[in-house]
């Protein structure tokens, strides 16, 4: 029992670090994009009362990366949000790896199911 407990704790620490890196990277991108966005549109009136839906280029991974690379503030924010959405997915993938190393097959199956459901939600983005 004790070797597996040690692995659990080590796993917890690494998981915590992983979540932190993902969130910090995302926050930095969102903040950087936010500065560009506010510098260009800060003095205009906010327009969120009527729903238009985002343009296609801010709905897909390829379009978002392209918009961010061209220096669009909204594009960089959206890229940061994409990193944020990816963080829990990477976390689940990491858990799958950790459970497999522990040869905990019940949790390998459970974690694979969660990962498959997450993938189903992301299919529209590619």
């Amino acid at each position: 029992m004790s070797p597996s407990r040690w692995t659990d704790e080590e796993f917890d620490v690494r998981l915590g670090r992983l979540l932190q890196v993902g969130v910090i990277a995302s926050a930095l991108l969102v903040a950087a994009g936010g500065i560009v966005y506010l510098a260009s549109t800060g003095l205009a009136s906010p327009d969120f009362a009527a729903f238009h839906g985002e343009p296609d280029r801010l709905r897909y991974v390829r379009g978002i990366v392209h918009a961010a690379l061209t220096g669009s503030g909204r594009g960089v924010i959206q890229l940061g949000l994409l990193v944020l959405i990816a963080t829990p997915v990477v976390r689940v993938a990491f858990a799958l790896f950790a459970f497999a190393r522990q040869r905990d097959w019940i949790y390998v199956a459970i974690t694979s199911t969660v990962l498959a459901l997450l993938a189903a939600g992301m299919t529209g983005l590619i």
């Binding site: 906010p46 969120f48 985002e54 343009p55 709905r59 990816a86 939600g121 992301m122 529209g124 983005l125």
Partner: peptide
């Protein structure tokens, strides 16, 4: 986070996620 990530993909694809807001 994991729960919200599952539906966030659907929302992003649908154009509901506004970067400015």
């Amino acid at each position: 986070g994991v729960t919200a990530a599952a539906s966030a993909g659907v929302y992003l694809h649908r154009g509901y996620i506004n970067p400015g807001l």
